[in-house]
């Protein structure tokens, strides 16, 4: 019987330091014909240290490798961060649904991300960079702690060619960036409210960002949110990630706000 818990060994092809505590791991494909869509995730593991879900953040049309950006936040991630080129990481997946990017074709797009949560939306940004004509205009609102926590800084010049990148930092060390939470950008940048929005951030961010977006006139069905949850099985069995009648691991991680607002328990239970 097929065992979906079986990991596939992926060779680390490249390790790049990214921000003060994160690294981008470029991995060989887990198996032939592996493919994924923007917003999907894999379970990555090291024997002896367990498993955890990570968004795939490379471009989905890239067929030679996948990339994961991993921040040192616990036992497994600290251990993965010690790994070097040529080492092995166990991967199973891809799991979950994806950001519906088809519906954004020819339309304005808004990407709102906070801190490390820019990972799951990076494939959309890379899609815009690779296909400048695909979307009307792409806005990125990125909120971060400070300069040292910002991710993918080296790519900003190429992003800026295709996107309108706006960054707000809680504690900026230079005057280059706006000080404040990511919501501040909604008042600084004139954003077309018919945009299709892709949002990912820490739980605290959603409350304020969504309130701001609704206030500006965004429609709940045009806002797509990627949720983070504790996951063990990634197949809708183990119950850790459940919200209402849905499983974030299987029915998500991407939900439209129209879907989510009916759940009493998505942001904080009851």
């Amino acid at each position: 019987m097929i065992n979906d818990y079986q990991t596939h060994n992926c060779k680390i092809l490249k390790v790049e330091s990214e921000s003060s505590d994160s690294k981008i791991f470029t991995l060989s494909l887990p198996y032939k014909d592996f493919s994924f869509e923007a917003g999907q995730y894999v379970m990555a593991s090291l024997p002896g240290f367990g498993e955890a879900p990570f968004s795939i953040n490379s471009y989905f049309n890239e067929k030679k490798f996948i990339q994961l950006t991993i921040r040192k936040v616990g036992v497994l991630t600290s251990e993965i961060n010690k790994k070097k080129k040529g080492d092995i990481i166990g991967i199973r997946g891809p799991y979950g649904n994806s950001f519906p990017i088809g519906i954004a074709k020819g339309k304005n797009v808004l990407i709102v991300a906070g801190g490390i949560a820019i990972e799951p939306v990076r494939p959309i940004i890379l899609d815009a960079v690779n296909n400048p004509q695909k979307y009307k205009k792409v806005f990125i609102f990125y909120g971060c702690r400070d300069e040292s926590a910002m991710l993918y800084v080296k790519e900003y010049p190429s992003w800026k060619k295709a996107c309108d990148l706006n960054v707000a930092l809680d504690n900026p060390k230079s005057k280059k960036y706006i000080k404040g939470p990511v919501t501040i950008l909604f008042d600084v940048v004139n954003i077309p409210t018919d945009s299709i929005a892709y949002v990912c951030g820490p739980p605290i961010m959603y409350k304020f960002v969504l309130a701001k977006m609704l206030e500006k006139g965004f429609r709940p069905e045009n806002i797509f949110i990627s949720l983070e949850r504790h996951m063990d099985c990634a197949q809708g069995v183990c119950q850790h990630c459940a919200i209402g009648t849905k499983y974030v691991c299987k029915d998500g991680p991407v939900f439209s706000y129209a879907e989510l607002k009916d759940f009493k328990t998505w942001l904080s239970p009851i």
Binding site: K72, V73, R229, H230, H240
Partner: peptide, 24 residues
């Protein structure tokens, strides 16, 4: 429901904080 905090030493995020939430 525990997920990682911002750093190894930082408090973890727990999505169910009260007993009422757990029993619900």
């Amino acid at each position: 429901t525990q997920v990682a905090g911002v750093a190894p030493s930082a408090p973890k995020h727990r999505l169910m904080a009260t007993t009422a939430q757990k029993i619900y």
